[in-house]
Nucleic acid binder design. Structure first.
Lengths: 230, 230
DNA sequence: CTCATGTCGATACACTGTATTGCTCGTATA
DNA sequence: TATACGAGCAATACAGTGTATCGACATGAG
C-alpha cells in the first residue's frame, strides 16, 4: 500500500465563526441586494455545507440582524465632538453613507430593534451627545425624533435611487424617468399641487435634501433643549 | 342518458380583477404578515389557479405596490382643514393608524416610490396643504421632512410592537421584555447614557411619543414657512 | 484502545415565484 | 349551421428557498 494508493486524509472543514459568515453575507448583499443572500450561497462562499451555518445562527433573520450590527460599527465615529448638534449630524450622515455603501441597509433600517453591541453603542453615542442638556425624557424624544427622520429619509433616498436605476439610469428627469404613467396622471389635472412641484421645483441633489431636512429637525430639537425663557 | 348521469357543465372560473386580488392579499397579510402572502395562497382564496394572477400583475412586487396603494386610500382624509399644521398632523396620524391596522404596511412604507393613484392623491393632499405658504422648493423640503419623520417613526413603533409581542406580551418592561441580554449589556457599564435612559426614563405610550416628535417637526417646518422677519 | 460527544454533510420536505405548454371554450366568420 | 380562431386558463415544470432530521465520523477523554 504505497502513498499513491492511499487517498489523502479528509480535509478538515475550514474554520468558521460568525464574523466570517456575516462578512460573506454582506459581500453577497452588497452586490445583488438582500435577496441575493441565501443560506446556501453564503455557505458556498465559505466552502461549507448550508446546515453548518445553523450552528452560528438559528434563523436567517438573525443573520440579517448580525449584518446590520456589523454595519453599525462603520457608523460609530471615533471621537465625539462636544457640540451635540454636530454629533447628531455626524451620526446621521454616517448612517446615510453606510446605507449608500450597503444599499440593503435601507431595507432593514428601522425594521427591528437594534440590540447588538454596535447597535447599542450607536444608541449610547446618540444619547451621550445630549448628556446634561435636558432631562432624560426630553432626550429620549429628541433621539427618537432625529433617528425617525433620518431613517425615513434614507429609505426614501435609496428607494428613489433604485427606481431611477430601474428606469434606465435617467438622471433627474422625474417625469420621463418614471415613464409616461406619471406624466399622464399629472396631465389629468387632478394633482395640481403635485404637477406644480414637479414642473416648477428645482432639482436638488439627495445629499442637500437630506442635510436640509436634518437641519430643520435639529432646529426643532434645539428649541426644546433650551426652551425660550419667558 | 338522464340528467343524473350527466355531470354538471364545468363551472366557469370565478371572475377576477385586481381589486379582488388585492383584497385577498391584504386579508392574508393582515393576519400573518407579508410573508403569509404567496401567489398560491392568494389564488387559492379566490378559487383560482396561481398562474391566473399573472394576467393582472406581472410580478409579486407589483402586488405589494397595489396593496400599498389600496391602503393609501384609507389615509386620504375627506375634507382638508384650512390649517396646514392640522392637515399635516391628520395625514401623519392616519398613516400611523393605517399601519396599526395593517402592520405589514410598516415593512413597505418608504420602500418604493408610491406612484399609484391613491399614493399620488396622498402626495397631492400633502402638497396642497402648503399651497401659497411658501415657494415650491421650501414646500418640497417640508413635505419630505415631515413624511421622512413619520415613516421612520411608524417603522420603529411597529418594530417595537412586534418585539414586545415576540417576547411574550410583556407590556412596557423594556429590560425584562428583551430578556437578559440587554440587562447584561447595561450592567457592563459600557452604556451609561443608555442605562440611565432605560432606568430613569418615563414610559410613554407610542401614540404620544409619535405625536410629540411630529409636533417638533411641524414646529421646525413652521419656522421655515414664516421666516422671522429681521 | 475504546467509548462518548459534539459537529458536520447528506438527505428530505414543504414551499416559493414564475416560464412554458397545450387545452378549452366563447365568439366571429363563412 | 359549421368552422376557424384566439384569448384565457390550468397543468406542469423548474430552479431555488429555509430549515428539520439523521447517520457517520473525527476528536478528545478515560
Amino acid at each position: 500500500m504505497t502513498v499513491w494508493d492511499r487517498p489523502e486524509p479528509p480535509t478538515r472543514p475550514v474554520p468558521l465563526d460568525r464574523e466570517r459568515i456575516v462578512a460573506a453575507a454582506i459581500a453577497l448583499a452588497d452586490e445583488g441586494g438582500l435577496e441575493a443572500v441565501s443560506v446556501r450561497k453564503v455557505a458556498a462562499h465559505l466552502d461549507a455545507g448550508p446546515m453548518r451555518l445553523y450552528r452560528y445562527i438559528s434563523t436567517k433573520e438573525e443573520l440579517f440582524d448580525l449584518m446590520v450590527d456589523e454595519v453599525q460599527a462603520e457608523i460609530l465615529p471615533g471621537e465625539q465632538p462636544g457640540d451635540w448638534r454636530e454629533a447628531l449630524r455626524i451620526l446621521a450622515q454616517r448612517t446615510r453613507e453606510a446605507a449608500l455603501r450597503h444599499e440593503w441597509l435601507a431595507d432593514l433600517l428601522g425594521g427591528r430593534p437594534t440590540l447588538g453591541p454596535n447597535g447599542l453603542a450607536v444608541t449610547e453615542a446618540t444619547l451621550a451627545a445630549f448628556d446634561g442638556l435636558a432631562d432624560v425624557d426630553t432626550v429620549m424624544r429628541a433621539v427618537e425624533t432625529v433617528s425617525a427622520y433620518f431613517i425615513g429619509a434614507i429609505r426614501r433616498e435609496i428607494a428613489n435611487l433604485r427606481a431611477e436605476r430601474a428606469t434606465g439610469l435617467s438622471k433627474h428627469d422625474w417625469q420621463r424617468a418614471h415613464g409616461p404613467h406619471v406624466t399622464r396622471m399629472l396631465a389629468t389635472g387632478r394633482f395640481p399641487a403635485l404637477a406644480k412641484a414637479v414642473y416648477d421645483g428645482t432639482d436638488v441633489d439627495a445629499e442637500t435634501s437630506f442635510a436640509t431636512g436634518l437641519d430643520w429637525v435639529l432646529n426643532a430639537v434645539a428649541a426644546k433643549l433650551t426652551p425660550t425663557p419667558t
